[in-house]
């Protein structure tokens, strides 16, 4: 049986079709949309929680989406080791749901940031980066107002000890500079995984960097890694 990818849609998601296109058309995988009111994830092998402004970012980004009916199933899926990838608002939702540690503050300089940035790959032994090497630099678009990752000192120590930081914002050479940390994130963190390594949250949008005609295909390698690890398509 072929593997299936689920893309969750919340009211206010707006990268759901980007994610669907990336999976279905670019990667050629069987893909389906999952409305947030669904609660059955049977048959799904990989879950994508796309970006956007679920519930208008009311209260805090991701705070209300986290109580959508589908999230109980997502938590079960993740706890059983199912691979989950939360991008941008998806990352914020995973934080609010407690599947990943930390929280998102408004960007330090308060501006909504919409541009291509560089991130450095910090691990190549995760299912999301197995086709990359530690230190590789990817050029990926970001588009967020609340991407300033926050975690307290004890939490940061624990992230480091368990090697959970997957991406950091850097310059094009992979160096962390004063300007490279675009939003003020603690320790320049752009993406983290849970301890088990099956849940990834990241602010940059790999699903929008899949085709050269759209500026960059650096995002594709993440899905190629995942697909080869999960033996999809």
């Amino acid at each position: 049986m072929s593997k299936k990818i689920g893309v969750i849609i919340f009211p206010g998601s707006n990268c759901d079709h980007d994610a669907y296109h990336a999976m279905k058309s670019v990667m050629g995988a069987e893909t389906e949309f999952l409305w947030h009111k669904e609660s059955d994830l049977s048959g799904i092998d990989l879950l994508l929680i796309p970006g956007g402004f679920s519930y208008g970012d009311y209260l805090r980004s991701g705070a209300i989406a986290r109580f959508s009916p589908i999230m109980n199933a997502v938590v079960d899926f993740a706890k059983k080791g199912g691979p989950v990838m939360g991008i941008c608002n998806g990352f914020q939702i995973l934080l609010e749901a407690g599947l990943l540690p930390g929280a998102m503050l408004h960007n330090e300089k308060l501006r909504f940031i919409c541009k291509d940035v560089h991130v450095r790959v910090e691990r190549s032994d995760s299912i999301f980066t197995s086709r990359l090497s530690k230190g590789d630099v990817l050029r990926l678009p970001v588009s967020h107002g609340e991407g300033n990752y926050f975690i307290d000192d004890a939490g940061l120590d624990s992230l480091k000890q368990n090697d959970q930081v997957l991406f950091r914002y850097t310059d094009a050479e992979g160096k962390i500079t004063e300007d490279s940390n675009i939003n003020g994130s603690v320790d320049s963190i752009a993406g983290i995984v849970n301890r088990q390594g099956n849940v990834l949250g990241m602010m940059p949008h790999p699903e929008r960097a899949m085709e050269k005609t759209l500026g960059s295909e650096d995002g594709k390698v993440l899905f190629e890694s995942l697909f080869s690890e999960l033996q999809i398509a």
Partner: peptide, 8 residues
């Protein structure tokens, strides 16, 4: 449970 995020 909802209104505040005690992480921050």
């Amino acid at each position: 449970q909802l209104l505040a995020n005690e992480v921050m």
